[in-house]
Design a protein around this nucleic acid. Structure first.
Lengths: 191, 191
DNA sequence: GGATAGTTTCAGTAATTACAGAAAGATCAA
DNA sequence: TTGATCTTTCTGTAATTACTGAAACTATCC
């Protein structure tokens, strides 16, 4: 039982380190999930981030108990997002992966992508709806109907909100190289 | 075919209104989904928001083609979140529902809840991890190991980020009654 | 009390999403 | 070229999540 498969004796601190890392990884995975990110993907990212040192596919597989296929696909997806990087070690055949180290940069990349994929289409739809309900589409009398007016109002409220949110995102995205963003600096000074 | 089940003749503008609303509802549902919110729940909310006028369970069922059970559960969940409200009409037996009308208030409620449910636990975990890796837990020499130092650095980076984010959320949450939040006003003035 | 109108709960099922493992595809060295 | 090593893709399956429909429950009226 404890013969061939026994791990090389590890110093106590290494075990403790691993335990702490695992704790973080699991929590990060849970959080990711509730924000619409596949748990495994979030966990891989957490592992690479928290570990600092680059890891190869087999490291990741072993550490998180996932299949090669899963690891490969998730790593690729993370690369596509741009929050981890491929890394070739001199004289080594296999690829290593490392996370971006700057959290602000990481999240600004994520913000940019989500804005593009999710917020922009909504704004576009809102505008399309507004057009369908303006006077030139419905005629003057129909456009005055209470129900139409109400919906128009609601569309406008949402549009305003999303426009402001977009601006904030853009600021965050534009200035997020290393350390606090301009947005954040402004906020921290103000309060 | 077109006899008994034919809908009462609706003016053209009502159809157009419905089409526009449906467009918005579908998009909102899609967005919700990618943010980890059940599509149906997001759609119900979108319907109540965009429609303005309160609707009863049967209205919702019919409009979104969902079962009574689903409607009931989702409506209750939305009430629990606090972004829609139950409403009793004088002399009517059944309940109606309406969405909050102020988008800023709505999102500040959502922000508060997600902070509580998802960000706070992560922050707590990070601190727990840091404790596990400090000198008094590991001993001086172990705590100096490169791997430990690296992980500690990463934990710290993440902690800082989440603390600032938390503060921003808190501002947003605290001041979001009707119209632009203080956070947002500060930002808009600054850029 | 019973009848009616409306709401909630929940067990079973459908739909979706995540995953493993194996096969195919690369890349490189000799 | 062949073989070795490593990566990607993909199909079937497992796990999860979402949904329905019917039964149980509640409130209201007569």
């Amino acid at each position: 039982m404890t013969l061939a498969t026994a791990p090389a004796a590890t110093p106590a601190f290494a075990e403790q380190l691993r335990t702490a890392q695992d704790l973080f990884i699991r929590r990060w995975g849970e959080m990711g999930q509730t924000w619409g990110i596949n748990r495994t993907m979030a966990e891989i990212h957490a592992l690479l981030y928290i570990n600092g040192l680059p890891l190869c596919t087999d490291d990741v597989m072993e550490r998180l108990n996932i299949s090669r296929g899963n690891a490969s696909m998730s790593l690729r997806a993370l690369c596509d997002w741009g929050i981890i990087r491929r890394l070739h070690k001199r004289g080594e055949r296999r690829e290593y992966f490392e996370s971006l180290s700057d959290v602000w940069e990481m999240f600004s990349i994520i913000a940019a992508e989500r804005k593009r994929r999710e917020m922009d289409p909504v704004l576009e739809t809102i505008r399309q709806c507004q057009q369908m309900l303006d006077e030139s589409s419905l005629g003057k009398s129909a456009a005055k109907h209470e129900s139409v007016q109400l919906t128009r109002q609601r569309l406008q409220g949402m549009e305003e909100f999303m426009e402001v949110t977009n601006k904030i995102f853009q600021q965050f995205i534009g200035n997020a190289k290393s350390g606090l963003t301009r947005v954040v600096k402004v906020l921290l000074k103000a309060f």
